[in-house]
Design a binder for these strands. Structure first.
Lengths: 200, 200
DNA sequence: GTCCGAGTTGGACGACCGTCCAACTCGGAC
DNA sequence: GTCCGAGTTGGACGGTCGTCCAACTCGGAC
């Protein structure tokens, strides 16, 4: 095969891994399958990545970065607290259904990493980044709409993740976007009921 | 090994599978690992079960049966709608934290079955049974407290599963029962806000 | 034109997988 | 006491896995 910059190989392999995991799950995403999907010999995998686990770690970071940016653009135009909350939740869903491979991969990798002590930190990192992202949204909501919460901010953030995780779990099985949208709307109502002192 | 009734072997292997999946995840739950956990030679596995997939299918049925029964006993004493809703949700959490292997196994198996077309029906069966269980609870609530809902019953049932799935996803990673309890209490409030016409 | 080192990769390593079968054991009917 | 069929299981089958190395290629410095 012709010579390719290592960064380009890395990018191609990460994209291939995303497709394979999205299509056939973590169980089928072997080094051989991923390299074949990228049109490379198997040995190229370990020329680019130190190990399989290292590739997964990079994949998680890449997917989380792209997701955080996509969702944050969906609340830029919000001019009410309701618009902001609904925009964030529906923006997350729009992103998930637009890039299902990324959403599937995230859940596959969390489930995969949960059971092995040496990989458990990966699942915790995912939730730490989710929590940080939600808290950044909450601070933006406070700055823009003066919202305060009736309960500790940490409990609100956790409840947001309960909503997205719960909707995702079901959507992963039935891929029913309309039903997911309805459930998220109920979630938005529940979140707004926790707000007080909204600046007019 | 001494002669053992096939049903006893089946029971022992299912219990062993539950332990292995709960401790090390689906990826480590091979026929060899499970048989060893049950103190049997590997070949016993295929003397009892037609295939690995058939064992998983039986395991799901067993776990769902036990779970449904455990939760239903936790609302028997409820004498208000709030007590009923909170009792059901907290009863589910009590069951999950009392038998973590069963809860872990259910999520591991759903994730495992999602990606393979030939196994996808298993994930759908799990949600069909969850939905049926929740709808049975809702009918019991209507009979006992005369409750009606502001939105379609199907949307309420789906929202209940969003709550349990979302709480479970996080609990599987951090095992924080207190935080799960708080999140479920918020979920109960959200559900009660969807109720109307409660008989006094 | 020569050479070097980075890029590339076929193929092997040991391990584990689900499944299966031939050979063995042994309780109980006769 | 004999025998049979159900119960039991060691070991093998072909497959996949992550990883690695020796051997090859080739762009670019000299």
């Amino acid at each position: 095969m012709q010579r390719i910059a290592v960064e380009d190989r890395r990018t191609a392999l990460l994209a291939a891994a995303l497709h394979v995991i999205g299509r056939e799950g973590m169980g089928a995403a072997s080094t051989r399958t991923i390299a074949a999907e990228a049109g490379m010999p198997t040995a190229s995998f370990h020329y680019v990545f130190a190990s399989y686990d290292a590739m997964v770690e990079q994949l998680v970071a890449t997917v989380l970065d792209a997701q955080a940016e996509a969702v944050s653009t969906s609340v830029e135009a919000a001019d009410t607290l309701r618009g902001f909350v609904e925009g964030a939740l529906q923006g997350w869903l729009d992103r998930a259904s637009a890039e299902p491979d990324a959403e599937v991969a995230l859940h596959e990798i969390v489930a995969w990493s949960r059971s092995s002590p040496g990989r458990r930190h990966l699942a915790e990192v995912v939730y730490a980044r989710y929590t940080a992202a939600v808290e950044a949204f909450m601070q933006a909501a406070e700055a823009r709409f003066g919202v305060r919460w009736r309960i500790p901010a940490g409990d609100v953030a956790r409840f947001v993740l309960v909503l997205t995780d719960g909707v995702a779990a079901r959507w992963l099985v039935d891929r029913d976007v309309a039903a997911a949208r309805t459930a998220l709307a109920l979630g938005a109502d529940a979140l707004l009921a926790l707000a007080q002192d909204v600046r007019p």
